[in-house]
Design a protein around this nucleic acid. Structure first.
Length: 879
RNA sequence: GCGGACGUGGCGGAAUUGGUAGACGCAAGGGACUUAAAAUCCCUCGAUCUCUGAUCGUGCGGGUUCGAUCCCCGCCGUCCGCACCA
């Protein structure tokens, strides 16, 4: 009887309904089995699921399905990172309310995800814009305030002029807003901050324990936190000419990581915002003008990066800590940052390229103080390249001859003992690059910050009983800026302390706050408190977190901070939220363009026909017949139109094909190229499995599965059990491409024996082994192609669902061969093989090897110099 | 500038991290079946040569080793992160 083609369109919804009916993917917090929490970074509801999401969620789903089959109580939830600018932009452009726009998008995207057949616990779904969710976030905020983890301060902030809001440092990429792409400006504003710097050392130290995180991500976080060990040195101001006196100032505090180079110092430089600079400018119009210039030059981060190094001599002098007769000039310099260290440095031109450029420009002395080992001091000079390496100290008086790190300690020791005012002249100090996390955003579509400003009482928290602070629904988007500020009534409120008229905080929280704790909320989304600490303790940490590398710093560092802050406030009982982290690659596609670079037209993959002419690929625009230029592989983007939507695949081939293709070939951490041939190939394999299983279902009806150790049947059983072992191991390692290769191998190994069965040539042992092999195959494909697996299982006569069946156990005796094939080398080059019993001892192996024809020929009758036998691996005869 | 990763057939990639280089898939070529096509099945597929065999071959040049895709040194190239951080 002819076998009908497998029809995913009819089959897939059927099995999705069957899973739903049995609630197979809903996790029970009281289930006694060991837990496993797998999570993919939740999507922003932009409107459509794109293919990158599909790849991400498929990986998580394979892990979830596999772990479920291995007997774990699996939590695999999904939600929506739903606050943010695009909803407001849509409101301004299309007059849709951000809330309606967001929830409509969520509904559409939920349907798209359901088509993929993901084993998600939809009962726990939430969106961060749900009042229920941001209510709990406000509770957390107030708890953090109580514990002193929140501050309000005025500071220079990154201002995005297009979105008209503040951005955190992490959200500024190449001087531009991460979302709008607009050039970011510096502005002084009063903002709310989370004190992430309180945890800087802990966040750094704990990276070491994150064994299941990519090294790359840990390194990026380490650099971002940017710890440095140095010395705070207080330089006395020189006793002034009466005219050069700066009122009330006696010292200049600088931070340095190179105190060893203190005898190479030739100038001091302070930031334009430094108090000393401001004071000095009061009676120095030229300096005031320079400071003003620096401020104007520094309006954009990008301008800062390319600005020339400029300074202005304040006329102030400091005295060298080790020599009363040595004074150094104090400059205001445009390259010194007020918010790092003390906003002041000492310049050592010979040991720092930037200081050298500055010294050369302003004619300041350059004294080499560190010389490479073995160099001649008489001829060693620094002209226009600073020396920053290790070596020996020179021109440094009592430090001469020391190594720089010895000199560091010596300087620290001596200056710690000297005093200035009534403080030591120097202190060892650790500095971090990491800044506090500014969370104020001047936007409507975010979580309101639950604080009230009262003229008498100052800033007062909203009492918990008054929560949630809801976003008003009646809101206008006719002008840029913060709509909450313009709302006629919302911000008017009584002070909870004195009852007088007061004003609500109209800033909302950075959306990264929303995503910093959603993984904890998933453990008990129904809880009245932000978390149910018992459930959180049980489920957390997330065993396997999967998402894009673009969140290596932002989201992951914030979440690590938040988990610590939640522990501090009693909401969770751990510091590290994500035990295992995996960063997956992108889905890329080549681009097609008609016309020249400047006025060309991008074409979508569906608008071109690909031809193969004399081995050269050509792309032709279907509508016009014009030839298009095939461009390189790039991340799918709307602007270049090289996108493929998940529907284009699922509508034709079904979800299983999309899932299978997405995971085959490319390792999951690398980019995968979407090709039509690849998708077609994946679909061919689905049909092949279907034919194979359908045929087997007929020819093996009534046969009971059994493994065999010997003969043809043994070969089949060994192939099946070896595949079972390695596919399991590969999935544990997230090596999906390798798991898939092993599945192909098993399918290939079963094809010929199944033909023999069909032709009636098989004995009962072979039939039983084939039956078992086919059943194993069905279980192996299930994590990746769950719908096909169910259909196959059903066809084979299974009465239950594969999704609720355990992962089969392999027989250890079937994954090792009793005879092994040892490659035999002569002088390190392979000359042949030796087939011998697996348990043969070294003597027997050596004897057998030396008896081989090609070995004897190579030896020419002489005795070998050496025979190296690596058990189970290889034999090398050295002639 | 600082830090990091990577480089293997026509292509995506494997190789138990010192032990048979190229598993598995895609593409290509040949054949079978068919009136024909699609589908399917079988075979070939790193290069060169004196072709039942041999030599070369994992970006390039050295080194260590019985043996190197893997370890060491020096180059070249690609990609990524950070960047006036004192």
């Amino acid at each position: 009887m002819a076998i009908e083609r497998y029809n995913p369109r009819a089959t897939e919804p059927k099995w999705q309904k069957a899973w739903d009916a049995k609630k197979l993917f809903e996790a029970d917090n009281d289930d006694p089995r060991p837990k496993y929490y797998v999570l993919e970074m939740f999507p922003y509801p932009s409107g459509r699921i794109h293919i990158g999401h599909t790849r991400n969620y498929t990986m998580g789903d394979v892990v979830a399905r596999y772990k479920r089959a291995k007997g774990f109580n699996v939590l695999h939830p999904m939600g929506w990172d739903a606050f943010g600018m695009p909803a407001e932009n849509a409101a301004m452009q299309n007059k849709v309310h951000p809330k309606d726009w967001t929830y409509q998008n969520i509904a559409a995207m939920r349907e798209q995800l359901k088509v993929m057949g993901l084993s998600l616990d939809w009962a726990r779904e939430f969106a961060t814009c749900d009042v229920d969710y941001y209510h709990r976030q406000q509770m957390l905020f107030l708890d953090f305030v109580e514990k002193g983890l929140v501050t309000r301060k005025s500071s220079k902030v990154n201002w995005d002029p297009e979105d008209m809001t503040v951005l955190a440092n992490e959200q500024v990429i190449d001087g531009r807003g991460w979302r709008s792409g607009a050039l970011v400006e510096q502005r002084e504003l009063t903002q709310w901050f989370f004190k992430i710097t309180d945890y800087a050392q802990d966040l750094l130290d704990s990276l070491d324990q994150l064994d299941d995180w990519p090294e790359k991500v840990k390194l990026m976080q380490q650099n971002w936190i940017g710890r440095s060990e140095g010395l705070l040195i207080r330089w006395p101001l020189a006793t002034p000419d009466p005219g050069k006196m700066v009122a009330g100032e006696h010292e200049l505090e600088v931070y340095t990581t190179r105190p060893d180079t203190i005898f190479g110092a030739s100038f001091m430089a302070v930031a334009a915002d430094h108090p000393l600079a401001k004071k000095a400018a009061e009676d120095n119009p030229a300096l005031a003008k320079f400071i003003d210039e620096v401020h104007h030059m520094g309006t954009s981060v990008a301008a800062l990066e390319t600005a020339e190094k400029k300074g202005f001599d304040t006329g102030i002098r400091v005295v060298h800590p080790f020599d009363d007769t040595w004074t150094l000039p104090v400059y205001v310099a445009n390259f010194v940052l007020m918010d790092y260290g003390t906003g002041a440095i000492f310049g050592c031109p010979s040991g720092d390229q930037r200081d050298l450029d500055f010294a050369n420009r302003y004619g300041l002395p350059v004294i080499p103080v560190v010389m490479p080992e073995g160099e001649n001091q008489g001829s060693f000079q620094i002209i226009d390249e600073a020396y920053t390496g290790d070596g020996v100290m020179i021109n440094s008086r009592f430090l001469d001859g020391m190594k720089p790190d010895q000199a560091f300690d010596e300087v620290a020791k001596l200056l710690e003992q000297k005093t200035i005012g009534n403080r030591p002249m120097a202190e060892r100090k650790v500095n971090f690059r990491l800044r506090d996390w500014g969370i104020s955003r001047q936007r409507y579509w975010g979580c309101p910050i639950p604080m009230i400003h009262c003229e008498d009482c100052g800033v007062v928290p909203v009492p918990k009983a008054d929560l949630p602070v809801r976003l008003p629904d009646d809101i206008e988007f006719d002008r840029p800026g913060n709509p909450l500020d313009r709302h006629p009534t919302w911000r008017h409120v009584k002070c909870p302390q004195c009852g007088k008229d007061a004003r609500r905080e109209t800033d909302t929280m950075d959306t990264f706050v929303d995503s910093s704790w959603y993984f904890a909320r998933f453990t008990a989304p129904w809880a009245n408190d932000p978390t149910d600490p018992k459930a959180a303790t049980e489920w957390l940490p997330v065993d396997q977190y999967i998402g894009g590398i673009e969140h290596a710093i932002l989201h992951l560092l914030y979440s690590r901070f938040f988990t610590r802050a939640m522990r501090e406030t009693g909401h969770v009982d751990l510091a590290e939220p994500f035990k295992g982290l995996f960063t997956q690659g992108m889905v890329v596609h080549e681009t097609y363009r008609v016309g020249s670079a400047s006025n060309g037209r991008w074409l979508a993959p569906s608008e071109v026909r690909l031809e193969d002419v004399d081995g050269k690929r050509r792309a032709i625009e279907i509508a016009t017949g014009e030839e298009a230029v095939i461009g390189p592989l790039e991340k799918m983007s709307k602007s270049k139109k090289n996108t493929v939507s998940p529907e284009e695949i699922t509508d034709g081939y079904g979800a299983d094909t999309a899932r299978w293709f997405m995971l085959s070939d490319s390792p999951p951490e690398r980019d995968v190229e979407w090709t039509d041939e690849g998708a077609a190939g994946a679909h061919r394999f689905i049909q092949r499995i279907w034919r194979l299983v359908s045929t087997a279902a007929e020819t093996l009806a009534g046969t009971r599965p059994a493994a065999a150790k010997e003969g043809d049947a043994g070969v089949v059983s060994k192939a099946a059990h070896k595949a079972l072992k390695s596919v399991g191991e590969d999935i544990e390692k997230l090596a999906f491409n390798r798991a898939i290769a092993r599945i192909y191998e098993l399918a290939n190994a079963l094809a010929t024996p199944l033909n023999e069965v069909a032709e009636g040539k098989a004995d009962p042992a072979l039939k039983a082994a084939c039956r078992q092999g086919v059943e194993v195959l069905v279980h192996l494909i299930a994590p990746v192609m769950p719908h096909l697996a169910e259909e196959c299982w059903h066809t084979l006569g299974g009465s239950d669902l594969v999704a609720e069946r355990p992962w089969p156990a392999y027989d250890p005796s079937l994954v090792v061969d009793s005879e092994i094939v040892l490659p035999v080398q002569v002088n390190g080059k392979k000359r042949g093989d030796l087939t011998i019993a697996r348990d043969a001892d070294q003597g027997a192996v050596e004897k057998a090897v030396l008896a081989l024809d090609f070995v004897q020929k190579a030896l020419e009758g002489k005795a070998p110099r050496k025979v190296i036998i690596v058990p189970q691996r290889i034999v090398n005869v050295v002639a």
